[in-house]
């Protein structure tokens, strides 16, 4: 499965970024083979609607699931519309994209069953 993990850095060993819309980048990894690429998040500098933009971006990358620390309502709706699964990983532990992949493979991640926060306001 193609998984997009929000990270802060350039490689799969970079730290996990608990933010979705404002994540620094996304690590797109094939959970079966472990092959990965990193893509800068174009929504990082968005004035508003970062979650919507990031969700469309990972959809275009072909992700079938994402892992992040939180999803605002618009990101959640956009990802759902694209049939992209939304997994949650706690943001308060220091760990890397590779650790997140391992946790995913071990079935330790929970799926977000709704919006995790009310969204931010930036307009």
């Amino acid at each position: 499965m193609k998984l997009a993990i929000s990270i802060a850095g350039q490689t799969i060993d970079s730290p996990f970024d608990a933010r979705f819309g404002r994540a620094e980048s996304f690590c797109l990894v094939d959970s079966d083979t472990g092959a990965w690429t990193v893509h800068a998040n174009p929504a990082l500098s968005a004035s508003g609607g970062a979650g919507v933009q990031a969700a469309q971006f990972v959809a275009k990358l072909g992700a079938q699931a994402v892992v992040s620390g939180a999803y605002g309502p618009k990101a959640y709706d956009t990802l759902s519309a694209g049939n992209i699964q939304r997994f949650l990983a706690p943001g308060n532990e220091a760990r890397s994209g590779a650790d997140i992949l391992a946790a995913f493979r071990a079935g330790q991640l929970t799926e977000a069953d709704g919006t995790t926060h009310g969204g931010h306001h930036g307009g």
């Binding site: 004035s47 609607g49 919507v52 469309q56 519309a81």
Partner: peptide
């Protein structure tokens, strides 16, 4: 420019508040 409209697959979403 405001990401008020999103197209994913065969769906279009409009976010009026953006």
């Amino acid at each position: 420019q405001f990401h008020a409209i999103a197209v994913v697959g065969k769906k279009v979403l409009v976010f009026d508040d953006l």
